[in-house]
C-alpha cells in the first residue's frame, strides 16, 4: 500500500462520511441523487463478491464491509426514512440509469480479464463505477444551487479518483508486473467526468462564494 492509495481510500471514506453527516444532521437528502447511490450499492455488491473467498488484509475486508454497508444504508434512508425521503428531488433525478447498467454489463461480458462469474462482475463494477456519478452531476446541474456538504461530498469523491490515478502511476513504476488496464482506463474516464465540477468548485472556493453550476 502506498501513500496515494491510502489517501484515495481515505478521501473515499470521508466522502461517504460527509454524505452520512449531511443526511443525519439536516435530515435531508436534497441535492443527492438516489440513482447514483443505487449505482454505488450495485458497484460494491458486484465488486466485493470475493469478500469471503479471497482474504487480502483486515484493512481490505473492513473497508469493503464499510462501503457495502454505508451505500445500502444511504439508499435505505433516501427511499424509506420517514423524514429524509420527503426531501428527495424526485422530479430532478430522472436520469435513465438502467441504460448505464445494461451498457456496462454488456461491456463486461465482452471485456474482462477472465470469463468467470466473479471476473465478469468485477469488470462490470469497474465500468459502472466510472459512470455512476453521472445522475448526481446531472441533478446538481439541474438544481443549480449546491449546498456546502453536497459540494464537499462530490469534491471528495473526485479527489479519491485523482489519488487512485497517482497510485496506479506509482505502482506501474515500482511493481514490474503491474498492468491493470481495465481499472486504469475506466479510472481515467471516471476522473475526467469530474473535471467540469472541479473547475467550478475551485472558482467558488477562490472567490469564497457559494458553489453554483451554470445551467
Amino acid at each position: 500500500m502506498n501513500i496515494f492509495r491510502l489517501a484515495g481510500d481515505m478521501t473515499h471514506l470521508i466522502s461517504v462520511l460527509v454524505l452520512l453527516l449531511k443526511i443525519y444532521a439536516t435530515k435531508s437528502c436534497s441535492g443527492i441523487s438516489l440513482k447514483t447511490q443505487e449505482l454505488y450499492a450495485m458497484v460494491f455488491l458486484a465488486r466485493y463478491l470475493d469478500l469471503f473467498s479471497d482474504f487480502i488484509s483486515l484493512y481490505n475486508t473492513v473497508m469493503k464491509l464499510v462501503f457495502i454497508g454505508s451505500s445500502l444504508a444511504i439508499v435505505w434512508c433516501m427511499r424509506y426514512h420517514r423524514v429524509v425521503r420527503r426531501s428527495y428531488d424526485r422530479e430532478l433525478d430522472t436520469f435513465r440509469y438502467w441504460i448505464l447498467v445494461g451498457a456496462c454489463f454488456t461491456l463486461a461480458l465482452v471485456l474482462h480479464e477472465k470469463f468467470s462469474f466473479q471476473e465478469v462482475f468485477w469488470a462490470f463494477s469497474i465500468y459502472l463505477e466510472a459512470v455512476a456519478i453521472l445522475p448526481q452531476l446531472v441533478l446538481l446541474q439541474r438544481s443549480g444551487n449546491v449546498d456546502n456538504l453536497t459540494g464537499q461530498y462530490v469534491f471528495f469523491l473526485g479527489a479519491y479518483r485523482a489519488f487512485y490515478i497517482l497510485n496506479w502511476i506509482y505502482r506501474y513504476l515500482t511493481e514490474p508486473r503491474f498492468t491493470r488496464w481495465i481499472s486504469c482506463v475506466s479510472g481515467l474516464v471516471q476522473t475526467a467526468l469530474y473535471a467540469d465540477f472541479f473547475y467550478y468548485y475551485f472558482i467558488s472556493w477562490k472567490n469564497n462564494a457559494k458553489l453554483q453550476l451554470p445551467a
Binding site: 492509495r5 469493503k64 481499472s183
Partner: peptide
C-alpha cells in the same frame, strides 16, 4: 505471487 491478478484495491 502474481501481483497483476490479485484484486487488492477497493
Amino acid at each position: 505471487r502474481e501481483p497483476s491478478n490479485v484484486k487488492d484495491e477497493l
